[in-house]
Design a protein around this nucleic acid. Structure first.
Lengths: 336, 336
DNA sequence: CTGTTAGCGCGTTCAC
DNA sequence: GTGAACGCGCTAACAG
């Protein structure tokens, strides 16, 4: 692996000059520029990014923390962030936090030790104080899906309550009055907010909330099945089931079918997130679209603008509104 | 951000001693070790990985190239590799190549410039010569899903032909004789091999291969729909459809249903890969399991063993065998 | 066991 | 326009 020194020798110029043509900031005469380029090609020279970073105190890389590396939801997020940043010549270092505080901390500390210029965090488990302490240490962070009052301008969030509201309201508008709900884990903010939206829609329609019609899941498919079974054995008259994410909706669909129900004739099911496979399901899932890819882009734009001083052609929005996606799993309530 | 120098001053020891307690390789007395730790805590010191790398010529990071950051297939692969390597204290830098030679090269060169200790590559588009030239430059690479004769010990591959064979054979065993096929793009090795397996099974059963019953797709869901429609309009008597991946199988299912066919009564459908959503589909997809997570783990193990000289508790296997996963989308051919 | 001294490969002043 | 010299933060001999 050739070094800048070897290039300078081969080109018969000084090491500083080579550095100049690499970075293209200072003026270098055309003739020497050519000589240097020729030498670089001949030696197959590639700048050592590590050394560049150490010298310039800039890594041109941004750290990204997601909960999981698999799954469509985070896949969409990673994908949009990576492509936007890569177009700008920046690079992304991805880590997974697995929704555990300790692992999230480790991941963040790894990103810090790599001296990323900024961190885009989807941190679910770590405390607010910890996040704030990062800022105190001059770590540039931007949060996705987490709302911290004192860090508002660094938070990009979805209006989860609105989402929950839209889902249940859609069921109500189809005439449903007995509506069950499978929520996410209560310790997660977004799960609480989505549930709050559900209750809000119920209240607005003068339907009283019945805790027997609510099951707490953990966002996994299996809990959709389990939830359906538990709910059904306690109450067999609900005609619609709203789920806090698409995975659980899918599980519920499977369980419902195994119990001989057809969808949406016997039971309407509504999901949340609109992940890719929602449209693969049968019937195609009616769900609430979570614009996670756009939120990722927004985070990337924030970094480009605030950290790298690049001009961007969007305004920074911090609150995203979800929308209902009407497909086939929600139907009108049956007469009689 | 405190430096090692500040720590050494605060602890009243030399800079080298601090380095020793950080790396824990040389012996340091308990007392000074304590002093150093106290100083590090007080200053909130975090080693600068960039500087460590430059000095030690070791980054403790391995580069990973996948085609896409989204999608269950690569998600599983990234996930297994990351968790295995992280457990070993190594870190993963992930990049996407988008199945384009130019982008793959850029991604690889980025990983090289970051001086990753090794590269795990799922390179689809880049040439064999390019890959070989990497080795000539002392870049340690290990390939997933790519078989290069002169690099065999660095290739971890799936027996795709066997997979294609198993899929079609399963259909034949259910009595099907008119079997259509939607393949992946012919320029990809794996697509060719899967198709070869299909033909092999056909031949073994004395069914002649009919090119009118074969459609070339690009591994995307939409091409499953398109493929079904094209195949159907040319021939409406086939009773089974084998698809080269699950996405296309899903698309085909949708299209078949839109054409009034029920699955598997009117048409059996078989997929390939066994990605997560295959079991969410309705009916649940019969498919060929692609042990991509295990292959990823194997690659990680190879790196741990060959690059980091760690002892691993598996033998390195380079050829993985796929297996049929029987679910509900394949049924016996209808009498009459 | 501990301190001193060179670099690692490069960016960045300063002079010329 | 170009070169010499220093420093980024740390590891790795080499002495002691």
């Amino acid at each position: 692996m050739a070094t800048i020194y070897e290039v300078s020798k081969a080109a018969g110029v000084s090491l500083a000059t080579v550095s100049r043509v690499i970075n293209g900031n200072a003026r270098v005469s055309e003739r020497t520029k050519e000589k240097v380029h020729k030498a670089m090609d001949a030696l197959g020279y590639k700048p050592n990014a590590i050394a560049q970073s150490l010298a310039s105190n800039r890594t041109n890389s941004v750290g990204l923390l997601v909960s999981e590396l698999h799954g469509s939801f985070f896949g969409d997020m990673m994908s949009s962030i990576e492509s936007m940043l890569r177009d700008a010549g920046k690079h992304v270092v991805i880590t997974a936090g697995h929704s555990e505080a300790e692992k999230e901390k480790q991941a963040i500390e790894f990103l810090i030790s790599r001296r990323c210029d900024a961190l885009i965090l989807n941190a679910e488990a770590v405390s607010e104080d910890y996040l704030k302490s990062l800022l105190d240490n001059n770590i540039e962070i931007i949060l996705i899906n987490r709302d911290i009052e004192s860090l508002q301008e660094r938070c990009i969030v979805l209006d989860n309550q609105l989402g929950g509201y839209l889902a249940t309201k859609a069921a109500i508008e189809q005439g449903h009055t007995e509506i069950a709900y499978i929520s996410g884990p209560h310790f997660k903010e977004d799960a609480q907010q989505r549930l709050a939206g559900h209750k809000q829609a119920l209240k607005e329609a003068n339907i009283s909330y019945d805790s027997e019609l609510c099951f707490e899941g953990g966002y996994h498919e299996s809990e959709g099945q389990e939830g359906f079974n538990v709910l059904r054995s306690a109450n067999d008259s609900f005609t619609a089931l709203v789920c806090a994410n698409d995975e659980m909706a899918s599980g519920a669909m499977t369980a419902a079918r195994e119990n001989g129900l057809s969808i949406p004739e016997d039971l309407s099911i509504i999901g949340f997130d609109n992940v890719l496979f929602a449209r693969y399901l049968y019937p195609k899932l009616t769900t609430v679209d979570n614009p996670i890819a756009k939120m990722g882009e927004m985070a990337a734009n924030w970094v480009l603008s605030n950290i790298y001083q690049q001009k961007i052609n969007t305004e920074i929005t911090r609150l995203f509104k979800p929308e209902l996606v009407v497909r086939d799993s929600l139907g009108a309530v049956r007469a009689g």
